[in-house]
Design a protein around this nucleic acid. Structure first.
Lengths: 219, 219
DNA sequence: TATATACTGTTCATATTGTCACATTAAATA
DNA sequence: TATTTAATGTGACAATATGAACAGTATATA
């Protein structure tokens, strides 16, 4: 089987999605053409890479002079990535992070709708809460199956993370955005994106310190 | 100048920090020795890579039989990365995400202290708030300079992000964790880690869809 | 003490990823 | 219409990162 027939590279997909978002922004600004140069700038990559990505993804529609027609490119990107219809997700764990995400406005712009929250703490449970009901974790699996939820956000404490992940996987969830401070590993049919905020900050400090030391050593 | 003398690779540093966290966890569980195998498992990388990383970082202290003494390894990691003393950060933008972060307990475990929040909205400003005062953005630069803050979290709306970033850079901040939905690019003396939640979720959906399609095509 | 074992450290091979450079070609211009 | 120009598309290449393999050696065991 040829590898090239399908896109494997995780980063490539990410970049394509990013290009798409940038193109949408360009379009909303009234532009109708984009150049590999602009796109690269906006996406933080080189123009060569933009062109190569388009080439690899078989969606090269650029005019040798005058760049890429944004509309055509967007169409092709949609055909490749799949049109982004309304995406329904659930949030497991309604602590600080979880509730902040439930109220996060950024989702609306991206066609993401949080349809339910789940928690173990009886004090937080409120099936009648509007617009997002908060249900007990015991109902998680059934809900996910019934509503055909594909992606879930995990914002539970460290010790609960692995257990919930199993439940989600068993219920058929295929993608998880994990905010809990454990590095969860993905199975074959489950995709996990880990975001560990404290870890990122720690990392930043180390990086800053490293830069300082290197700068000091270079003088 | 030899490259090997200093660690350049961003991912290597990240892995080292991760190893360190795992080692701390091991230690708190009462273990005194670690093996490249365990470490790799926990960090989600191969055992070869663990050994290679240690080798590159010049902190190979493993016994040919019996693995790595955790205490020694931690000491060396600290010597290399710099001991993690209390890290003071500020949070700019006290909306949903910002406030959630201010109350986030995960920071305490990692020796990170949020010393102030900043916002433009007068309704949110409260210099007397305990334990974290919320100050007007106009005071940001002065505060950062005076308190010698090195790392800031950015949780402002899209249109404000670039402006605040400039202010932070000018005031001497060296690391920024950016939650705003713009992909900010780092200057030479400023390090940026972007976290775009909506984007991550969007990405997950695309990835899930891709996997489905590939699975369908492979049958 | 001698031997066996099991883990490290390092070398080598391989795969992957992004950049460079250039031929190609559509539009602009005269 | 002929020519110029400015952008793309892609093959070759270099850099990098990872995995596999294996020699070397400290500990355990008898």
């Amino acid at each position: 089987m040829k590898k090239q027939d399908f896109i494997v590279q995780k980063e490539l997909i990410q970049r394509l999605v990013r290009y798409k978002n940038i193109l949408l922004k360009f379009k909303s600004m009234g532009l109708s053409k984009a150049f590999s140069d602009n796109l690269g700038d906006a996406a933080g990559v080189s123009s060569s890479l933009v062109r190569k990505d388009f080439s690899l993804a078989h969606l090269a529609v650029g005019n040798k002079r005058g760049g890429y027609p944004i509309d055509v490119l967007l169409q092709r990107l949609d055909a490749l990535l799949g049109t982004q219809i309304l995406q329904r997700i659930v949030i497991v764990g309604c602590g600080k992070i979880g509730t902040a995400l439930m109220n996060y406005k950024g989702f609306a712009n991206e066609n993401v709708e949080v349809v339910a929250g789940f928690d173990n703490n009886p004090a937080r449970i409120n099936p009648a809460a509007a617009p997002i009901p908060i249900l007990p974790v015991s109902q998680l699996a059934a809900f996910v199956k019934e509503q055909d939820i594909q992606v879930a956000v995990l914002a539970v404490p460290e010790n609960a993370a692995a257990g919930i992940l199993d439940q989600l996987a068993a219920a058929g969830v295929q993608g998880v955005l994990n905010f809990s401070p454990v590095q969860l590993k993905a199975g074959s049919s489950l995709f996990i994106q880990n975001i560990n905020i404290a870890f990122e900050i720690e990392n930043l400090f180390y990086y800053v310190r490293f830069n300082q030391r290197r700068a000091a050593a270079e003088t």
